[in-house]
Design a protein around this nucleic acid. Structure first.
Lengths: 217, 217
DNA sequence: GCATAAACTTGCATTCACTGCATATTTTCA
DNA sequence: TGAAAATATGCAGTGAATGCAAGTTTATGC
């Protein structure tokens, strides 16, 4: 099976790597096009293989499962130095810093806009895939919750002082991801025209409004 | 196939209904016990069927999928009148009202505590099941977001005034569910000893602390 | 009570996702 | 170029899931 099946195409890369990327892309394209045409459930792995000219075995070498060919590939975690900067960050607002970090990472997206949009459409019209996607996002949230915990610790907050510190971290992440979802939606709906700054500003306003105008129990 | 396969056992109910409930429970028990012993992936549907004395076909009549036998059964939505009360509610805090409504519903849980705990343990040690469970929770969140929207509308807030009203609703729900998760965790960890009031108070304090001490971007 | 309908269970055959293993085929690199 | 490493493929098998056409059990009207 391939050594690293998920690396994106690098221009001046070795032949092997470029072929790998091409195969990967061909399978994805075929999968998504077929599913948009016939519906996810009516597409078999064999159909995808035939359309993309690979054997079924190769398909499963690239994507461990049928769903794998349809979901976004990259792990979407920020590079380690960015994470470190966040953890050691002196910014007064965890929300602001976290939001900025995530926005910088996530909005990077696939170079291939057309494929990205096709996949987005497909996922959002296929409950099965949508659930998987949500699960993926959930895992990402867990990772970010870990970063927030690290930041708390770095700033001297411990479970000794605050027993439910981890819950606090999770809630912060949940809220920021809510805002992210909002951003992504607007971005997709608006045909990807807004700048990152505009989106961040809008989302930020939303969080502020919600939390400011509330009476707490 | 059974007419309504998911109804819980009613004491003075017809023989048929009681048998249905018994079969359902037997399958669940067998499934969870087997998985706790051998691991989810090493348990086949046939093994469950043999242990619970039903045919494979019957298994799939009851639970549409293998996973179905392991996940919590009920939809866990509050009864319509409670929902209506929430929507028309005059309470000044959506958070407080929503939290109270959810707490009242969710903490109801299965009559069978032992089975509940066994399932909980199994799910949290099986990534596959955990993802499914999260997806289920996600769907529930969607439903509640709908209720919050209805409440907004009822109180005269419209998308015309606030274009991102739905995002606001989703974030409210996300936050409250974060608190709920916290509550559930404490409840399970503490061997189900705390009263509902204690839990609600703790979660409420958590939300308050998080949002009060923040500087917003 | 009993016959008949309705609800429920089962067996069987089939499709499809997925895996392990052995065997080509291609790419790399000394 | 020729051996080694990386990929691709074929094949056989497992297990989940579904439709259909019987059986079997429970409910109901008389």
């Amino acid at each position: 099976m391939p050594r690293d099946v998920s690396s994106p195409a690098a221009p001046g890369d070795t032949l092997r790597a470029r072929k790998r990327a091409a195969t990967r892309l061909a399978i994805r394209r075929a999968a998504i096009d077929l599913a948009l045409e016939h519906g996810y459930d009516n597409v078999t792995v064999d159909m995808i293989c035939e359309a993309s000219l690979v054997s079924q075995r190769t398909f499963f070498n690239y994507f461990g499962s049928k769903e794998g060919a349809f979901l976004s590939g990259a792990k979407a975690l920020p590079p380690p130095d960015v994470v470190r900067a966040f953890i050691d960050g002196t910014g007064s607002s965890v929300f602001a810093d976290l939001f900025t970090m995530i926005a910088g990472t996530v909005v990077d997206i696939d170079a291939n806009l057309e494929l990205f949009r096709a996949r987005h459409q497909l996922i959002h019209q296929t409950p099965e895939l949508l659930n998987q996607e949500k699960a993926r996002i959930g895992e990402t949230e867990d990772a970010f919750a870990g970063f927030v915990m690290d930041r708390f610790h770095f700033h001297g907050r411990t479970e000794a002082d605050t027993p439910d510190l981890e819950d606090e971290a999770r809630m912060v992440v949940a809220l920021v991801f809510g805002a992210m979802r909002f951003v992504m939606q607007k971005w997709v709906a608006g045909n990807f025209t807004e700048t990152r700054e505009e989106l961040v500003r809008a989302a930020s306003g939303l969080i502020q409004r919600i939390t400011a105008n509330e009476h707490w129990p």
